[in-house]
Structures are given as structure tokens and as C-alpha cells.
Design a protein around this nucleic acid. Sequence first.
DNA 1: AATTCACGCAACCGCCCAGGC
DNA 2: TGCCTGGGCGGTTGCGTGAAT
Length: 330
Amino acid sequence: MGRPPCCDNGVGVKKGPWTPEEDIILVSYIQQHGPGNWRSVPENTGLMRCSKSCRLRWTNYLRPGIKRGNFTPHEEGIIIHLQALLGNKWAAIASYLPQRTDNDIKNYWNTHLKKKVKRLQQQQQSHPDHHHHHSFQTTPSSSNAAAVATTSPNYYNPNNSNSNSSNYLHNNNHNLESMQSMATAPSNEATTIPKLFQFQTWMKPSPATTSSAATAAAGSCYKQAMAMQELQEEQEGSAAAAAMASSIDGVSKDQDYHMCAVISGDDKSSSSEMMTAAAMAGHGEAATTTFSLLENWLLDDMPGQAAMSAAMDGFLEISAGYCCADPIMF
DNA sequence: AATTCACGCAACCGCCCAGGC
DNA sequence: TGCCTGGGCGGTTGCGTGAAT
């Protein structure tokens, strides 16, 4: 007989989708205390959630470094390779794709890739001569995996674990590639909480980055993001977008990327990303102001663009003043 | 326009493992 | 050494949404 679920004895434990208010509470708490000791989270926050639910909400949705939205063909290939190699070890597979959660990968496999692989296998059987023309193989050998490891060091480096997302966030070599994929992705991709944590990373003390410089960089980067988006809309060409991305000056490229990643979100993405910004801002009056903006955005159901714009205006003002905020270590 | 169906994703469940006592 | 507990993982479910009829 197994151990009862952790929430069995909980009276009035809430289930179902998380509300923005709950997200705010959870992120605020983790911002102060760090992840871990999940047992204490519901006790100390008053959340009517079981500890496991809090942990899952954090790891699958709220934690920094998560990329959401469509998977790139590159990511698909990696997942297919690794699934063939490792089986359904989603956590292990996720460790090679630090931006993706195991849950996301698992869902994507179950809903997309499994069918795709099956279809390709059927095609392979019916047209054995053509199988090697596919962009990825369905039964890779370890040497295939090694080949991917050689050609895609950013994703396929076994040392690149997602156990510490800040490691990933500080892996600046990855940024250009990420930016390129961002530029070529649909507009609803990659517009999530993680950006705001990237923003927080971007806000780390830098001798070259003053408050006004940060604001200026924000403006300039916003233009770049918009230009890139326009370019993409006009041409739908990854090469052009990649060229645009690579045209950004080298010295500030990484910082610009983080900034762009935050600013260029053009949809009403997850409410929790704004909430996370509030948690990140977490400094007295500024935090209160941010929370106020975010609460409006979260709760009043404003039109996405206008609300995002208003919230971002406030957030940028605040962040400019707190660009040397203490880094939060997760 | 209303209903049905299929799909995607967030969240839950149950089991396992590791560490502390 | 064995038990207890917290945390992690993989499988599964259920709801929301858009497409099809």
C-alpha cells in the first residue's frame, strides 16, 4: 500500500487552474525564499494549494528560463533523437533543452511528435529509398546523437543542465541562436515569464549600463524588435531575420537580446509574466507601482496591446531606476 | 447558429528515490 | 536498519478552444 498523496489530509485544498493572484503570491514567496522546502510554501503563503501543486506550478510555468510556444524544427529533432535514445525520460530530455520543461516536452511528444514519427516511419516503410531525406531520423544510433552534439553544442551539451537556470541564462553564446529562432518563430512564441527573468539578468550591475542608458537601450532595442518583426512579416524569411539579428553590435549584443526578448512580446501573453516582473521589481514603492499596473493588467481584462504597453511603460521606468537590483539566485 | 469533435495544454495522481532521524 | 518525509518523475486526466459538420 502506497503512501497517501501529500494533499489527502488537506481540508479545502484547492485544485484546478491557478489564478493570477495565486501566481503572484507564489512568485513573491519564491523570490524571497527561493525554491525548495515546498511543504512550507502553502503554510507560509496561505495558498490553499498542496505543496506539490506549488512546486509543479513553479517548475512548469513560473520558473525563469522557460520558453513557451511552438517548438522549432531543431528542438523537434533533438527531442526525437533523445526520445529514441533515452525513451520517455522527459526530465533527462529536458536537461538538453533548458528552455523547455519536461512537461512541455512530454505534451509535445504526445500530441505532435509521436504522430509525426509514426508517419515518417510509415513513409520509410513504404518508400525506403527516401528516408534519409527527412530532416531527422526516427531510429538514431548513439553516433547520430553524437553528431548532433557536435553540431549543436548549445543544446546538446550534457553539462548544460537545467538544474540551475541561471547557468543557462548566463550562457551568452546561446543568445544569438535564440534570437534567430525567436525572430523566425510565430509571434505568439516565447513571450513568457522567463523573459522577465532574463530581464532581471540583464539588469545585473554593469559599469556601462546607467539608468538612462538602460532606457535608451530599451527604446533602441524596441525599434530593432519592431523592425525585425516587420521584416519577418514582409519576407517570412529566417535568413533575413538572422541577418538582422547578427547586425546588432557585438559588445551589447547579449544585453540587447535580453532586452529585446522582454520588450518585443506583442501579444497578451501569460499574465504571470507581468506578475513575475512585479516580483522581480520587489523594491518598495517601485514594486507597489508595478504591482498596481500589473494588477490592472491582470484583473481588468484590458485590451492586450494597450495594457501591455502601459504596464511596460511603467515597468521600464521602474526597472531603469532599479537596474542594479540585487540579483535573485534560484 | 448550434452542436459535435478533435486537439493542446495545464494540472493531478501515483509511484519511486534519497536523505534524515 | 528501517521508517518517515519531501521532492522528482512519468502517465494520465479534464477542461478550454477552435475546427468541422
